[in-house]
Design a protein around this nucleic acid. Sequence first.
DNA 1: GTATAATTTGAGTCAACACTCAAGTTCTAG
DNA 2: CTAGAACTTGAGTGTTGACTCAAATTATAC
Lengths: 186, 186
Amino acid sequence: MRYKAGLETRDRILQATRALIASEGLDGTTIKAICDQAGVLPGSFYNLFDSKEQAILSVVRQAIDAIDPDPEHKGIDTLSDLIDAYIRFVIEQEDLARVYIRLAISGSVNNPEIKGRTMRHHQGRVARFAAAISRQHPEMSDAETERRAETLVTALNGVTLHRVMDPDFDVAVHARALLTDALAGV
Amino acid sequence: MRYKAGLETRDRILQATRALIASEGLDGTTIKAICDQAGVLPGSFYNLFDSKEQAILSVVRQAIDAIDPDPEHKGIDTLSDLIDAYIRFVIEQEDLARVYIRLAISGSVNNPEIKGRTMRHHQGRVARFAAAISRQHPEMSDAETERRAETLVTALNGVTLHRVMDPDFDVAVHARALLTDALAGV
DNA sequence: GTATAATTTGAGTCAACACTCAAGTTCTAG
DNA sequence: CTAGAACTTGAGTGTTGACTCAAATTATAC
């Protein structure tokens, strides 16, 4: 797993896996389907990955990482920035957004690894949103800030969930509306 | 499929199917698992159902029906009633709520039947919420009412989605917060 | 240029899946 | 009581899944 050819093959396999999870769901993502799409045979897949699970986990990691833009600047974004970044993520990286939502549900069932990863990421996201709210409204209590952040993040996931089912759904409009609402009456 | 024994077996199979989809997801819901849990052998399952798919569809129908409380009184609920009924549904009929969220995603992928059913149900739910909003705020434009209803319904699904992952998540608090927010600034 | 390690091949293994069926058992109407 | 229909049994079918492996091929370092 060191030569150029191997790394390229690895890439093609991950691309195929990502596309398949997004379009067919976890069930449709078989080794055969991945290999067909990547132009590779099973033996080659297993030369590069220990298991199907490992390839899927790599894609999950991609999806989770892709949601958090600019993690270096942690702490300086406004709430509006965070929402806009999320809208951009859902629209521009549709496949990864689908993977994220799909795995959050199907994957977290009996897979502690995926479940833990998803939950931890959720906590981090809520904390970041809470920090942004707090910066914007320093007078708000911590509990209230936390609650508003959590409501907002889960509501955003709902928007993404609906987008997965209906490609015509206007993510931007509804996500921004949530932003407005989330700070209403303060 | 007419004797008492048959009807009872049918019931036990549907119960087992529902519990399995809720706890294990669609993948874990195998004929063997269903039969084990229902105390039945495969032959008996296939005496009562044409396919695994048919049993699952029956459970989906149950889940969708269970969300809409009191469909007779369509048109007279307040928005608060609708939210409260939904909170009650998610908490008291956790299994069906899990089935609903899970199927909305995994199931709708390559199953037009489930997808159509879910989408139609969503439309109906948005319409009902929109009617309630409109009753409460007759001055609001139709477009605005519709948009707020849609944001609210998708956000509520997000709350349910999170509840599926985290049983400690306080559905009531966040759902009611959404209600407050949804009508903020009017 | 050659040795060595990485990669690819593709036939093959084994388990689990949805589903079938002929034979037995139980129910219930008349 | 009886006849026929409904129900149950459980071994069996064919398919597809993830994964393996020895042999052939290709890339890279020296």
